[in-house]
Write a protein that binds this DNA or RNA. Structure first.
Lengths: 198, 198
DNA sequence: TAGCACATGTAATAAGTTACATGATTTT
DNA sequence: AAAATCATGTAACTTATTACATGTGCTA
């Protein structure tokens, strides 16, 4: 319909010979490198730090931690606080090398999937009410996200002023801000196009 | 580590009661609404139009078409050109209603997963060579994408000047352009931060 | 005392990719 | 004649989500 092929029967570098690998293990290792935690705490740590660009579900995280322990990349220790039991995980030296090795590997391009754009593409001119509301929602969400992320930006600068990792943490936040600002701009164009089509 | 919870044991609107649904069927229906095609041709149509924000693999598309046929949402017809056999699919009225209904449903927020950002977040200050090269790659890719998309923008305007669907198709391209321009800006910031940290 | 957050896990199932398999046609 | 592309499909497997199950401790 438009341009550039995209076909080809390319067996070019299929991610690495044979093995397809989940990133869940590396997220777990990376988060544990910031300090020991239980599976539950780890999940929260993920949600509250990289949550806006990476999520992990419990059902994935729990078995992954068990697997990492079997491989000796993390060590687990059961703790009892009164009647409450908890299993705390800690990264091992082997886990740290595994993490470091992964950090040096080129990230695979994450193929984006955007359902809103799909609906824009297939939209029926003359029946765009729903589409208009989807765009309005996306606009509101993006603006809200920008506000949240600006808040995080400020509090990060305050809380970790001297931490050498601050610039990197800020970069991830900046990514979110710039991306959502672009989204707001797109929503403006989209609103106009939809209005013109109605 | 930073802010906003993200936890909660939310059983709130789990996508729709019970059923998790793939979008593959709707992409197939939407593409067939633009005209009949074989599975192979359909896959190419997807890649060359919405490919930059949505991909489908053969292994997913083939069985989906078979399933859609069993449900009466598409009709298949085997064609023989000489010795070459082919199965062409066409959307049925039932398929068109299914597609229309989906177009009116609010798109689920697609949770993004960005491996590059993960590596930025976990980066070791003092060991940022690899990271620098990842960012350089991302920058080059984004700039190239912008060029490609600008080309598509122009050729779309020429080829479909009078088509009422043109504004919507253009919007998807604009999304790609604005997003990649934002990415280029981020890469600039990232390069500076990485350089400062080295 | 009811409900919620803390805490830990398992099971079922869906979704999606990769690899395999086969054969025709076109191009070099 | 070999290689690439067109064309159609299947099978194995990985990844990931959702739902279920269970119990503790706090608080309104």
């Amino acid at each position: 319909l438009t341009a550039d092929d995209g076909s080809r029967s390319r067996p070019i570098a299929p991610e690495s010979p044979g093995i397809r690998r989940s990133r869940t293990r590396f997220v777990a290792l990376g988060m544990l490198a910031l300090g020991p935690a239980s599976a539950y705490a780890l999940r929260q740590r993920i949600a509250s730090s990289v949550g806006f660009f990476w999520q992990e579900s419990f059902g994935q995280l729990f078995p992954t931690l068990a697997q990492l322990e079997r491989e000796g990349l993390v060590s687990g220790r059961s703790v009892s606080e009164g009647k409450r039991r908890r299993r705390d995980y800690e990264i091992t030296p082997a886990g740290e090398s595994t993490l470091a090795a992964w950090l040096h590997e080129r990230p695979a391009p994450q193929p984006e999937r955007n359902e809103l754009l799909l609906k824009v593409f297939f939209a029926n001119p003359g029946d765009v009410d729903a589409l208009g509301s989807f765009i309005a929602h996306a606009d509101a969400d993006a603006r809200a996200q920008v506000k949240v992320l600006r808040g995080i930006e400020v509090s990060l600068r305050e809380s970790y002023a001297t931490d050498p990792r601050l610039p990197f943490w800020l970069l991830t936040v900046r990514y979110g801000i710039l991306g959502n600002e672009a989204l707001v701009r797109w929503c403006k164009e989209a609103r106009q196009a939809v209005a013109a089509s109605a």
